[in-house]
Write a protein that binds this DNA or RNA. Sequence first.
RNA 1: GGCGCGCUAGCUCAAUGGUAGAGCAAGUGACUCUUAAUCACUAGGUUCGGGGUUCGAGCCCCCGGCGCGUCACCA
Length: 519
Amino acid sequence: MESSDPDNQIQESQAGNERDRLVGEQRLMHDRLTKIAALRELGIDPYPRSYRRTHTTAEAVKLLEAAEASHDDPEEHARTEPVSVAGRIMARRGMGKASFIDLKDGSGRIQLFARENILGDKFELLDLLDLGDIVGASGAVVRTRRGEPSVEITDLVVLTKAIRPLPDKWAGLQDIEARTRQRYLDLISNDRAMRNALLRPAIVASIRKFMQGRGFVEVETPVLVPVAAGASARPFTTHHNTLNRGLYLRIATELPLKKLMVGGIEKVFEIGRLFRNEGVDQDHNPEFTTMESYEAYADYEDVMAMVEQLVSTVALETTGSMLLKAPEEGGPDIDLTPPWPRLDLRQEIIKRTGIDFVECDDVESLSGAMRERGIHVEPGLSWARLLDKVISSSVEPHLIQPSFLVDYPVAMSPLAKRKPGVDGIVERFEAFVLGHEMANAFTELNDPVDQRARFEEQESMRKDFKDDEADRLDEDFLVAIEHGMPPAGGLGIGIDRLAMLICREESIREVILFPQLRN
RNA sequence: GGCGCGCUAGCUCAAUGGUAGAGCAAGUGACUCUUAAUCACUAGGUUCGGGGUUCGAGCCCCCGGCGCGUCACCA
């Protein structure tokens, strides 16, 4: 470091002055950039193009355990063949002529044990390393006196110098805004964030496997659509320049999938992103993921059986159990083992509120009954929207263990088939766990004349109640089913909600890597 | 959108209206089995932004920004 060249000394002191002028994060970055320059001075590239590792950290630990298991001389310590590992420096404990480094990779962590007498000149490299840097290290895996599996390193390679510091090594990143805006820091420093990030794709893979195992064909249908139909929601709008026409982002995949039913794909499903131009809160994100499936010749009883099998199987595959233990923050254990109770919607509403929607069959009587029971009534809502409110405020919160609400009023369900022999009721169910709706399904309406009438009713609701979330008439779809859609059972299941359940997270933000923030 | 809460060092958090602090991270030094290493020293602040009240504001008031919670709606 010291130099007899006076110019050099002046430069060094100027550099020192420059450092003194810098404050906070600027100085932290300056120090790291200075180390990068020093590495280059030594002919070391701080960003080499690749590194050949022989073992992940988890594999290295396993290797040591195997060596110890086949080791017969208790006097001598087990020692593996040399390995090469790579990862991010998470902590460092310097001991003068020895140093301990915690290295983290995608599989776990391992300690690096650096000793000057073994590493030689390379020991000085440690002075140029920082927490957050990515390095490669090689050497035999041994166990230290304190029992920690460690790579006793003979070689150390800088793979990436970081120029910004990591979050607090103990507390991690706490601020929810920073955790979502800079999810990479969350993933590095919070184990639960990484667990969730990996659990969700495992859930999706498991769903796909389940559906494919039952002979369902996965398809992709358009995100950009001329009519945002198939559900009750406000759509996002966009514009195609060359075609010079307005388009919507889809709010459901239901109608195109049913067109494929007409076409003869008898078991079909799609896992995809939907977009709804509505609020952001603990369990709503404007873009979210669903799995929708349609099975020809099945009815909603078949679908109910499939849903309880699907959800319990996915939980078993991804967590090893159908029993979801309560998280540390508290809450009930959840048992997903089938069968789940089937609860008649009408009876459940009566049980919780005393309101019988068969008697309160118009807006006046229903809103009156709601007001009597202290349920806030927004003026100008349709009967269907009012009843939906009764259900979500008075029934859903009680559905903690998995259960099905069964048989909905036709006014709430424009795409579901009427239940034979029961006036005003359709064959529809929703699945609930922890008070959240997980799935919505019905025996699909395939009578084209009735379907057209239902759409027209929705259109008039849009006008009469200024309900811009009412479902929309899709002429192309009606023409399709006028050619004959087989009887079918359909399902929509919220992947984000399912991920929340299996991750035992209360907020949708914890299972979406980059959720929408407010404003 | 209404209401409530929050925003202080890179990170995690303190601070009766009265000199803005600690731990981690950083820098210097000591240390060859540590693991939230330890020990000594050093540096690091537009207290989210703007206005106001006050002798004096991180703290009280007003306006704005961002976030969270809650109410309403969608899965």
